[in-house]
Amino acid sequence: MPTFTIVAGARPNFMKIAPIIHAIQKQQKNGKNLKFRLVHTGQHYDKKMSGDFFEQLNIPEPNANLGGGGGTQAEQTASIMVAFEKELMENPTDLVIVVGDVTSTLACSIAAKKLCIDVAHVEGGIRSGDLSMPEEINRMVTDSITDHFFTTSEIANENLRKSGFPESKIHFVGNTMIDTLIAQMPRFQKPEGAIFDGLEKEKYFVMTMHRPANVDQEQKLKAMIDAILEGTQGLPIIFPVHPRTAKNLQAIGIDAPNLHMCEPLGYLEFNYLVKNAKGVITDSGGITEEASVMNVPCVTLRDNTERAETIHLGTNELVGTDPAKLRPYLEKIMNGDWKQYQGIPMWDGKTADRIVSILMETYQ
């Protein structure tokens, strides 16, 4: 009986593992001999960033929590590697499944391969080309030791081919995060709180910002917020604030009546807001995917992206980190002159089924 260990560590991971778990459970109900063990590395340990996702996405409680949160990048990587090595030695497995590009993805891949255990990377092959991003290092190192790549796009496939990986390792299956989005859309719910009560459909913006290039320099952060406030012409802006951003916003004293800062939201609440927004302003990668599939205009405050398909076929535009370049994009959104979602191949809600079918054929 094949046994798979599925790793989740940070907020985006939970949306990506949920459909894989559900697809395995479906095969188990059909009488297939499959076992999985869910390991939470503890990289994000705030309830809003972790526990809520298990509840909302109907994921079982993890079999183990490694408690690997906190510390520097190196400290966190080391802590997770030590704990995950022990986990694998006590609970042997045929395959470790990692998702995305967070510290846990890198740490658990290395620990598994040093124990001669196969690694499958869900969302393998994506690249931004920006080595200043920790996530890019995580992607490159993880992919260099991966046995099975489950890819989201033809762009990712080509990146892997250029790196010399054989076609037999590359499985173009789609995007498990979109599986979750499609499955959960009927359950989206409006967040509770006074700042959400008066919101009207397509008459507000959703914003997220957390990357160092945007939030670590106080004057640049102030200039970006000012440009956003000007370009959105007084419409409400809902801004779930990452802890590092909150600290820096306090220092520069931003105060605008239409800028509504709030705690990080649950998955169902946040995507309710995105689905009904006039537009999204973000420096996140995953949100650009969700906004595109929901046909919501999205501007990305980054100089590069590892999700180019959201620009070519989705509703995303790469604006950069210069506040002066933002105005024409926001004008287009305000004027209703934005491109429409074209449909991204394989982003159809069936990715996890394809992944589990391949795993069942490979590990019989």
Rank of each mutant, 00 (worst) to 15 (best):
A324M: 11
D118S: 04
E75I: 05
N30D: 15
A120S: 04
G343V: 00
A120R: 00
Q342C: 13
T232M: 10
I333A: 10
G31L: 15
I355L: 14
P60L: 09
E135V: 03
K47R: 15
F36A: 10
P12A: 11
Y341L: 11
M209D: 01
I311V: 06
K26L: 15
Q233K: 14
H242R: 03
D147Q: 08
F14L: 10
Y267I: 08
E317N: 08
P19Q: 10
H260P: 00
V356E: 01
L235P: 03
C262T: 01
V296L: 12
I17G: 14
M334T: 02
F239H: 05
K332S: 15
F150A: 06
L221F: 06
N214R: 04
I24N: 08
E263R: 12
W338Y: 14
F150G: 01
V99G: 11
T3L: 14
D52S: 15
A352Y: 04
A352H: 02
P2K: 06
Q217E: 15
E167H: 02
I80D: 02
V122P: 03
F53D: 11
E290L: 05
D52Q: 15
L259N: 01
M140S: 15
P297T: 01
G198Y: 10
S50P: 01
A308C: 14
L131M: 14
E154C: 13
D348T: 07
G124S: 09
L313V: 12
